[in-house]
Amino acid sequence: MREHQPQESCLGRGLSWQKWLIIGLIVAALHFLPWTFPPQYVHIMIMIFLFTIMGQGWNILGGYAGQFSFGHSLFFGLGAYTSTLMFVHWGLSPWIGMVFSCFIGIMMGLFVGYLSFRFGLSGPFFALIMLAFAEVFHMISISWKAVGAALGLLIPLKGTSIALMQFVDKKPFYFITLWMMIGALYLVWRMEKTRMGLYFLAVREDNDAAEALGVNTLKYKMVAMTLSAGLTSIGGTIYAQYLLYIDPDITFGVMNSIEILIRPIIGGPGTVLGPLLGSLVLTPLAEFTRLAFQSYGGVYLMIYGAILVGVIMFLPDGIMGLAKRVFYKMRKEVG
Protein backbone atom coordinates (compact mmCIF):
# COMPACT_ATOMS: atom_id res chain seq x y z
CA MET A 1 0.00 0.00 0.00
CA ARG A 2 1.40 3.38 -0.98
CA GLU A 3 1.71 6.32 1.36
CA HIS A 4 -1.50 8.32 1.78
CA GLN A 5 -3.43 5.97 -0.47
CA PRO A 6 -6.75 5.10 1.16
CA GLN A 7 -8.02 1.53 1.29
CA GLU A 8 -11.09 2.15 -0.79
CA SER A 9 -11.11 3.24 -4.42
CA CYS A 10 -11.26 7.02 -4.86
CA LEU A 11 -12.47 7.13 -8.45
CA GLY A 12 -15.10 4.42 -8.28
CA ARG A 13 -16.33 4.87 -4.75
CA GLY A 14 -19.56 2.99 -4.14
CA LEU A 15 -22.13 3.62 -1.43
CA SER A 16 -21.97 2.01 2.00
CA TRP A 17 -24.79 -0.37 2.91
CA GLN A 18 -26.15 2.22 5.36
CA LYS A 19 -26.61 4.69 2.53
CA TRP A 20 -28.22 2.05 0.32
CA LEU A 21 -30.58 1.30 3.19
CA ILE A 22 -31.55 4.97 3.57
CA ILE A 23 -32.13 5.29 -0.18
CA GLY A 24 -34.19 2.08 -0.13
CA LEU A 25 -36.34 3.38 2.74
CA ILE A 26 -36.93 6.73 1.02
CA VAL A 27 -37.91 5.01 -2.24
CA ALA A 28 -40.22 2.63 -0.34
CA ALA A 29 -41.82 5.54 1.53
CA LEU A 30 -42.38 7.36 -1.76
CA HIS A 31 -44.54 4.44 -2.89
CA PHE A 32 -47.10 5.11 -0.14
CA LEU A 33 -47.14 8.84 -0.64
CA PRO A 34 -49.90 9.12 -3.31
CA TRP A 35 -52.39 7.49 -0.91
CA THR A 36 -51.63 9.85 1.95
CA PHE A 37 -51.23 13.10 -0.01
CA PRO A 38 -54.16 15.01 -1.56
CA PRO A 39 -54.19 14.98 -5.40
CA GLN A 40 -52.82 18.52 -5.84
CA TYR A 41 -49.69 17.51 -3.89
CA VAL A 42 -49.37 14.36 -5.96
CA HIS A 43 -49.44 16.64 -8.99
CA ILE A 44 -46.56 18.68 -7.54
CA MET A 45 -44.60 15.48 -6.89
CA ILE A 46 -45.12 14.37 -10.49
CA MET A 47 -43.84 17.73 -11.71
CA ILE A 48 -40.83 17.44 -9.38
CA PHE A 49 -39.99 13.99 -10.81
CA LEU A 50 -40.59 15.08 -14.40
CA PHE A 51 -38.37 18.14 -14.14
CA THR A 52 -35.71 16.08 -12.38
CA ILE A 53 -35.64 13.74 -15.39
CA MET A 54 -35.28 16.63 -17.83
CA GLY A 55 -32.93 18.52 -15.52
CA GLN A 56 -30.77 15.40 -15.43
CA GLY A 57 -30.83 15.42 -19.23
CA TRP A 58 -29.60 19.01 -19.26
CA ASN A 59 -27.11 18.19 -16.49
CA ILE A 60 -25.27 15.55 -18.54
CA LEU A 61 -24.50 18.06 -21.30
CA GLY A 62 -24.45 21.33 -19.36
CA GLY A 63 -23.29 20.22 -15.92
CA TYR A 64 -20.92 17.34 -16.68
CA ALA A 65 -19.63 18.01 -20.20
CA GLY A 66 -19.80 21.78 -19.63
CA GLN A 67 -21.67 22.64 -22.84
CA PHE A 68 -24.21 25.17 -21.61
CA SER A 69 -27.44 24.74 -23.56
CA PHE A 70 -29.97 27.53 -23.53
CA GLY A 71 -32.41 25.70 -25.76
CA HIS A 72 -33.26 22.34 -24.25
CA SER A 73 -36.92 23.07 -24.98
CA LEU A 74 -35.90 21.98 -28.50
CA PHE A 75 -35.70 18.35 -27.32
CA PHE A 76 -38.64 18.67 -24.96
CA GLY A 77 -40.80 20.02 -27.81
CA LEU A 78 -39.65 17.44 -30.34
CA GLY A 79 -40.38 14.70 -27.81
CA ALA A 80 -43.82 16.07 -26.98
CA TYR A 81 -44.86 16.71 -30.60
CA THR A 82 -43.50 13.45 -32.05
CA SER A 83 -45.37 11.11 -29.73
CA THR A 84 -48.50 13.30 -29.70
CA LEU A 85 -48.76 13.51 -33.49
CA MET A 86 -48.24 9.77 -33.81
CA PHE A 87 -50.90 9.16 -31.19
CA VAL A 88 -53.45 11.63 -32.59
CA HIS A 89 -53.04 10.68 -36.26
CA TRP A 90 -52.16 6.99 -36.18
CA GLY A 91 -53.31 5.97 -32.72
CA LEU A 92 -49.79 4.76 -31.95
CA SER A 93 -49.12 3.98 -28.30
CA PRO A 94 -47.13 6.75 -26.59
CA TRP A 95 -44.76 4.08 -25.28
CA ILE A 96 -43.70 3.37 -28.87
CA GLY A 97 -44.00 7.10 -29.59
CA MET A 98 -41.52 7.68 -26.80
CA VAL A 99 -38.94 5.57 -28.65
CA PHE A 100 -39.47 7.65 -31.80
CA SER A 101 -39.35 10.86 -29.73
CA CYS A 102 -36.08 9.77 -28.26
CA PHE A 103 -34.70 8.92 -31.70
CA ILE A 104 -35.76 12.23 -33.28
CA GLY A 105 -34.48 14.22 -30.30
CA ILE A 106 -31.10 12.47 -30.53
CA MET A 107 -30.87 13.01 -34.32
CA MET A 108 -31.59 16.70 -33.84
CA GLY A 109 -29.10 16.88 -31.00
CA LEU A 110 -26.38 15.24 -33.07
CA PHE A 111 -27.10 17.63 -35.95
CA VAL A 112 -26.93 20.78 -33.82
CA GLY A 113 -24.05 19.33 -31.81
CA TYR A 114 -21.96 18.51 -34.87
CA LEU A 115 -22.59 21.97 -36.34
CA SER A 116 -21.34 23.64 -33.16
CA PHE A 117 -18.71 21.31 -31.75
CA ARG A 118 -17.02 20.61 -35.08
CA PHE A 119 -15.95 24.24 -35.14
CA GLY A 120 -15.16 24.36 -31.45
CA LEU A 121 -18.14 26.53 -30.54
CA SER A 122 -18.80 26.52 -26.83
CA GLY A 123 -19.90 28.81 -24.03
CA PRO A 124 -22.25 31.63 -25.06
CA PHE A 125 -22.01 30.73 -28.76
CA PHE A 126 -23.24 27.19 -28.22
CA ALA A 127 -25.93 28.47 -25.82
CA LEU A 128 -27.22 30.84 -28.50
CA ILE A 129 -27.15 28.20 -31.25
CA MET A 130 -29.33 25.98 -29.08
CA LEU A 131 -31.67 28.90 -28.43
CA ALA A 132 -31.82 29.65 -32.15
CA PHE A 133 -32.75 26.08 -33.07
CA ALA A 134 -35.40 25.95 -30.35
CA GLU A 135 -36.85 29.20 -31.70
CA VAL A 136 -36.85 27.84 -35.28
CA PHE A 137 -39.04 24.96 -34.14
CA HIS A 138 -41.11 27.33 -32.03
CA MET A 139 -41.89 29.34 -35.17
CA ILE A 140 -42.55 26.25 -37.29
CA SER A 141 -44.97 24.85 -34.71
CA ILE A 142 -46.76 28.21 -34.44
CA SER A 143 -47.35 28.56 -38.16
CA TRP A 144 -47.81 24.96 -39.39
CA LYS A 145 -51.50 24.03 -39.48
CA ALA A 146 -50.83 20.27 -39.70
CA VAL A 147 -49.28 20.30 -36.21
CA GLY A 148 -52.01 22.44 -34.73
CA ALA A 149 -50.35 25.83 -35.28
CA ALA A 150 -50.61 28.30 -32.40
CA LEU A 151 -53.66 26.53 -30.94
CA GLY A 152 -51.64 23.48 -30.14
CA LEU A 153 -52.81 19.89 -29.93
CA LEU A 154 -55.38 18.32 -27.64
CA ILE A 155 -54.78 14.67 -26.86
CA PRO A 156 -58.14 12.87 -26.72
CA LEU A 157 -58.62 11.05 -23.43
CA LYS A 158 -59.63 7.48 -24.16
CA GLY A 159 -59.88 6.32 -20.57
CA THR A 160 -57.49 4.50 -18.30
CA SER A 161 -55.17 2.28 -20.32
CA ILE A 162 -51.58 1.35 -19.63
CA ALA A 163 -50.93 0.73 -23.34
CA LEU A 164 -52.08 4.25 -24.22
CA MET A 165 -50.29 5.83 -21.21
CA GLN A 166 -53.56 7.49 -20.23
CA PHE A 167 -55.01 7.42 -16.75
CA VAL A 168 -57.93 9.23 -15.20
CA ASP A 169 -56.12 9.01 -11.89
CA LYS A 170 -52.79 10.74 -11.14
CA LYS A 171 -51.27 7.76 -9.30
CA PRO A 172 -49.99 5.80 -12.34
CA PHE A 173 -48.16 8.89 -13.62
CA TYR A 174 -46.69 9.27 -10.19
CA PHE A 175 -45.13 5.82 -10.46
CA ILE A 176 -44.08 6.19 -14.10
CA THR A 177 -42.26 9.46 -13.39
CA LEU A 178 -40.86 8.20 -10.07
CA TRP A 179 -39.26 5.15 -11.64
CA MET A 180 -38.02 7.01 -14.69
CA MET A 181 -36.44 9.55 -12.37
CA ILE A 182 -34.79 6.80 -10.36
CA GLY A 183 -33.54 5.35 -13.65
CA ALA A 184 -32.13 8.72 -14.74
CA LEU A 185 -30.43 9.28 -11.40
CA TYR A 186 -28.96 5.77 -11.45
CA LEU A 187 -27.73 6.20 -15.03
CA VAL A 188 -25.86 9.40 -14.18
CA TRP A 189 -24.56 7.95 -10.92
CA ARG A 190 -23.09 5.00 -12.83
CA MET A 191 -21.77 7.29 -15.55
CA GLU A 192 -19.80 9.34 -13.03
CA LYS A 193 -17.62 6.33 -12.25
CA THR A 194 -16.64 5.43 -15.78
CA ARG A 195 -13.96 6.72 -18.10
CA MET A 196 -16.69 8.53 -20.02
CA GLY A 197 -17.83 10.39 -16.90
CA LEU A 198 -14.33 11.59 -16.08
CA TYR A 199 -13.75 12.55 -19.73
CA PHE A 200 -16.93 14.68 -19.67
CA LEU A 201 -15.56 16.57 -16.68
CA ALA A 202 -12.15 16.96 -18.34
CA VAL A 203 -13.82 18.44 -21.42
CA ARG A 204 -15.75 20.85 -19.20
CA GLU A 205 -12.68 21.92 -17.21
CA ASP A 206 -10.30 22.45 -20.13
CA ASN A 207 -10.93 21.35 -23.68
CA ASP A 208 -7.32 21.75 -24.90
CA ALA A 209 -5.78 19.97 -21.93
CA ALA A 210 -8.23 17.10 -22.44
CA GLU A 211 -7.26 16.83 -26.15
CA ALA A 212 -3.57 16.84 -25.23
CA LEU A 213 -4.21 13.89 -22.89
CA GLY A 214 -5.81 11.83 -25.63
CA VAL A 215 -9.48 12.68 -25.11
CA ASN A 216 -11.46 12.83 -28.35
CA THR A 217 -13.33 15.91 -27.20
CA LEU A 218 -15.62 16.10 -30.23
CA LYS A 219 -16.72 12.49 -29.74
CA TYR A 220 -17.40 12.88 -26.02
CA LYS A 221 -19.37 16.09 -26.53
CA MET A 222 -21.49 14.23 -29.08
CA VAL A 223 -22.02 11.34 -26.66
CA ALA A 224 -23.09 13.79 -23.94
CA MET A 225 -25.43 15.42 -26.43
CA THR A 226 -26.97 12.04 -27.31
CA LEU A 227 -27.71 11.11 -23.70
CA SER A 228 -28.93 14.61 -22.90
CA ALA A 229 -31.24 14.95 -25.91
CA GLY A 230 -32.68 11.46 -25.44
CA LEU A 231 -33.52 11.96 -21.78
CA THR A 232 -35.10 15.37 -22.32
CA SER A 233 -37.20 14.09 -25.26
CA ILE A 234 -38.56 11.28 -23.10
CA GLY A 235 -39.56 13.92 -20.55
CA GLY A 236 -41.42 15.80 -23.29
CA THR A 237 -43.45 12.72 -24.22
CA ILE A 238 -44.51 12.01 -20.64
CA TYR A 239 -45.36 15.66 -20.06
CA ALA A 240 -47.66 15.66 -23.12
CA GLN A 241 -49.41 12.46 -22.00
CA TYR A 242 -49.83 13.80 -18.50
CA LEU A 243 -51.28 17.21 -19.36
CA LEU A 244 -53.07 15.96 -22.53
CA TYR A 245 -52.39 19.27 -24.20
CA ILE A 246 -49.37 20.86 -25.86
CA ASP A 247 -48.87 24.17 -27.65
CA PRO A 248 -45.80 25.87 -29.15
CA ASP A 249 -45.16 28.13 -26.15
CA ILE A 250 -45.20 25.54 -23.40
CA THR A 251 -43.06 23.13 -25.44
CA PHE A 252 -40.55 25.05 -27.60
CA GLY A 253 -40.76 28.38 -25.71
CA VAL A 254 -37.74 30.05 -24.15
CA MET A 255 -39.38 29.89 -20.73
CA ASN A 256 -39.40 26.12 -20.94
CA SER A 257 -35.66 26.06 -21.67
CA ILE A 258 -35.16 28.13 -18.54
CA GLU A 259 -37.43 25.82 -16.52
CA ILE A 260 -35.29 22.86 -17.58
CA LEU A 261 -31.87 24.40 -16.91
CA ILE A 262 -32.60 26.40 -13.75
CA ARG A 263 -33.16 23.33 -11.57
CA PRO A 264 -29.79 21.64 -12.11
CA ILE A 265 -28.04 25.01 -11.85
CA ILE A 266 -29.63 25.82 -8.51
CA GLY A 267 -29.29 22.26 -7.21
CA GLY A 268 -25.67 21.90 -8.31
CA PRO A 269 -24.60 21.37 -11.92
CA GLY A 270 -22.40 18.36 -12.56
CA THR A 271 -23.70 16.42 -9.55
CA VAL A 272 -26.04 13.42 -9.47
CA LEU A 273 -28.47 14.92 -6.96
CA GLY A 274 -28.31 18.53 -8.21
CA PRO A 275 -31.34 18.33 -10.54
CA LEU A 276 -33.41 16.59 -7.85
CA LEU A 277 -32.56 19.14 -5.15
CA GLY A 278 -33.18 22.05 -7.50
CA SER A 279 -36.49 20.53 -8.50
CA LEU A 280 -37.50 19.93 -4.87
CA VAL A 281 -36.97 23.62 -4.12
CA LEU A 282 -38.25 25.25 -7.28
CA THR A 283 -41.15 23.11 -8.47
CA PRO A 284 -43.35 23.55 -5.36
CA LEU A 285 -42.35 27.21 -5.25
CA ALA A 286 -43.45 27.74 -8.84
CA GLU A 287 -46.73 25.88 -8.31
CA PHE A 288 -47.62 27.70 -5.08
CA THR A 289 -46.75 31.18 -6.33
CA ARG A 290 -48.79 30.47 -9.44
CA LEU A 291 -51.74 29.69 -7.17
CA ALA A 292 -51.10 32.62 -4.84
CA PHE A 293 -50.68 35.25 -7.56
CA GLN A 294 -53.10 33.89 -10.12
CA SER A 295 -53.99 37.30 -11.53
CA TYR A 296 -50.32 38.30 -11.84
CA GLY A 297 -49.03 35.74 -14.30
CA GLY A 298 -45.33 36.60 -14.19
CA VAL A 299 -44.71 36.71 -10.44
CA TYR A 300 -43.13 33.26 -10.26
CA LEU A 301 -40.70 34.30 -12.99
CA MET A 302 -39.61 37.25 -10.86
CA ILE A 303 -39.05 34.89 -7.96
CA TYR A 304 -37.02 32.57 -10.23
CA GLY A 305 -34.90 35.55 -11.23
CA ALA A 306 -34.28 36.59 -7.64
CA ILE A 307 -33.34 33.04 -6.61
CA LEU A 308 -31.04 32.66 -9.60
CA VAL A 309 -29.21 35.91 -8.77
CA GLY A 310 -28.84 34.81 -5.16
CA VAL A 311 -27.57 31.35 -6.07
CA ILE A 312 -25.06 32.63 -8.61
CA MET A 313 -23.74 35.21 -6.13
CA PHE A 314 -23.61 33.10 -2.99
CA LEU A 315 -23.72 29.45 -4.10
CA PRO A 316 -21.87 29.21 -7.42
CA ASP A 317 -21.87 25.41 -7.16
CA GLY A 318 -25.52 25.22 -6.17
CA ILE A 319 -27.06 23.56 -3.15
CA MET A 320 -24.79 20.51 -3.58
CA GLY A 321 -21.74 22.77 -3.46
CA LEU A 322 -22.96 24.24 -0.17
CA ALA A 323 -23.72 20.79 1.23
CA LYS A 324 -20.24 19.54 0.30
CA ARG A 325 -18.56 22.56 1.95
CA VAL A 326 -20.54 22.13 5.16
CA PHE A 327 -19.82 18.40 5.15
CA TYR A 328 -16.05 18.85 4.78
CA LYS A 329 -16.00 21.52 7.48
CA MET A 330 -17.86 19.23 9.87
CA ARG A 331 -15.55 16.33 9.12
CA LYS A 332 -12.46 18.49 9.71
CA GLU A 333 -13.79 19.76 13.01
CA VAL A 334 -14.65 16.27 14.17
CA GLY A 335 -11.21 14.92 13.34
Binding site: C10, L198, A202, G214
Partner: peptide
Protein backbone atom coordinates in the same frame (compact mmCIF):
# COMPACT_ATOMS: atom_id res chain seq x y z
CA UNK B 1 -5.23 21.89 -14.56
CA UNK B 2 -8.79 20.53 -14.40
CA UNK B 3 -9.44 22.83 -11.44
CA UNK B 4 -12.57 21.24 -9.98
CA UNK B 5 -11.16 17.71 -10.17
CA UNK B 6 -8.83 16.24 -7.58
CA UNK B 7 -5.13 15.79 -8.32
CA UNK B 8 -5.71 12.05 -8.62
CA UNK B 9 -8.60 12.51 -11.06
CA UNK B 10 -6.47 14.89 -13.13
CA UNK B 11 -3.82 12.21 -13.47
CA UNK B 12 -6.44 9.50 -14.06
CA UNK B 13 -7.62 11.36 -17.19
CA UNK B 14 -4.13 10.80 -18.56
CA UNK B 15 -4.10 7.14 -17.43
CA UNK B 16 -7.34 6.47 -19.29
CA UNK B 17 -5.39 7.11 -22.50
CA UNK B 18 -4.06 3.55 -22.33
CA UNK B 19 -6.81 1.73 -20.47
CA UNK B 20 -10.56 1.95 -20.09
CA UNK B 21 -10.53 0.05 -16.82
CA UNK B 22 -11.17 2.12 -13.70
Amino acid sequence: PFSHLSTLENVAVGCYNRTADL
